[in-house]
Amino acid sequence: MRGAGRRFLGDSLGLVLVLATLVVFFGLITRHFFSFTTLQTIVNQIPDSLVIAVGMTFVLVIAGIDLSVGSVLALSGAVLGVCLARLHWPLPPAIVACLFTGLLAGTVNGAVTVRWALPSFIVTLGMLEAARGAAYLVTTSQTQYIGEPIERIAEAGLFGISLPFLIAFLIVIIGQTVLSHTTFGRYMLAVGANEETARLSGVPTRMVRLSVFMISGLLASVAAVIHCARMSAADPNTGIGYELNAIAAVVIGGTSLMGGRGSVANTFLGVLIIAVLQNGLVQAGAQDPTKRIVTGAVIVAAVIVDYYRRRSGGLTARVGG
């Protein structure tokens, strides 16, 4: 355990450095960045992105990609919104319907990818379109205002920490444990490093691929519940571009786009970096073009810093290096 702990610290140092630099920078250029409100805002805003990013970490680890998460979030949220606001269902069955929608979308992604051996890029690109269309269809393109029934989720909490954050944090811990301490985790790393070798060694590669896309879809719908709770509403236009944000966070966290290597804990830091950046830029009053240029630059810079730290730390020889 001590070894693992030290390895995590060593691995994450570059990211912590980037994060600290950003916090200090925004602390200096704005008046109120060092405040409890900022912390509260970030804690309130990251759970949905975090949950999606955990699923995306798994997908990237097996050398796949899931472009549909933003649309699947919108569709699952739309189902949740319609069940609650229009059909007046109680909360538990509405949440089940929402989670089922996400799981279904993920299953379709996985099954099509596996059955016809297609690149997940193109399959999930199709789902990105289809799920968005379905979201407009179920809501008839109208934002569903849910209000009180769902707000309970956002307001609930333990020791002043909101329930959505606790759920997201729990998912991070479970995700990291699965990845580094279970057979399924080792299978994922093996499939990502070299699928053919993994298959010949007896890894059920098709099953692993299918499961990973199912998990990603399901987590997108968990994120949808959290998202709708935060907004008190389900907007069929929401979640556009979330897939790219999630991929950015995961890659900042050092997970390889080539697969075979990844860390959920570092994805957490990646999500935090993006959240701090977006929050800081708003507080600094940056205009839209500036915001986009800075965000793009920081994403690339964070990956570069991480690259050099890995080199100097000599930690590149791990699975799939």
Partner: peptide, 22 residues
């Protein structure tokens, strides 16, 4: 600041603005 007509983006931006301008 522009939030491009989007609910989620407006949510982030307003959160930031009320922190900076309480």
């Amino acid at each position: 600041q522009p939030a491009h007509w989007e609910m989620a983006r407006a949510n982030e931006i307003v959160s930031g603005i009320i922190t900076e301008h309480p």
